[in-house]
């Protein structure tokens, strides 16, 4: 269980509106520092620069989807150990299992409640080994 409280979040999401809602939720309700990335191909660079405690990845994105970003993160030393939470609108149980098998720290399904989102992330953060 991590010692420090959850503070720095990096969110990779192609949909501008959802980016805004999530940023507002985490900043206003969760009092966290948030970096949102729209272009998934440049996500890993942004993470290296921002040094987040936890990364949230959208599943379906053009050019490079969430799992691809995840794999790329695992290839780089700086991002290798950052916990990843997937945000997905895909409801199928097999796909959720697939995400967990890839080593995701958690899965939050869309649509999520912005009111509850900070607490959901903190609970995942605290349950990390």
């Amino acid at each position: 269980m991590p010692q420090q409280p959850l503070n720095r979040i990096c969110y990779v999401e192609d949909d501008e509106d959802i980016r805004r809602v999530v940023r507002m939720s985490l900043e206003r309700i969760g009092k966290m520092t948030v970096e949102v990335v729209a272009d998934s191909t440049r996500a890993v660079e942004a993470m290296v620069a921002f040094k987040p405690d936890l990364v949230m990845l959208d599943w379906m994105m053009p050019v490079m989807d969430g799992p691809a970003v995840f794999r790329k993160m695992r290839e780089q030393t700086e991002t290798m150990h950052i916990p990843v939470v997937f945000i997905t609108a895909k409801a199928s149980q097999t796909e959720l299992d697939e995400l967990r098998n890839m080593g995701a720290a958690g899965v939050i399904s869309k649509p999520f409640s912005p009111k509850a989102l900070p607490d959901q992330l903190r609970s995942i953060w605290h349950s990390l080994p």
Partner: peptide, 27 residues
């Protein structure tokens, strides 16, 4: 089905999320 599920939920996520934030009083 998978696409429909995604395409319908994505805008709804923004709509419901925004309204919830407004209605929660944090604004």
């Amino acid at each position: 089905t998978s696409t429909l599920s995604h395409e319908l939920r994505t805008p709804l996520t923004s709509i419901i999320g925004s309204l919830q934030l407004v209605n929660s009083g944090v604004m």
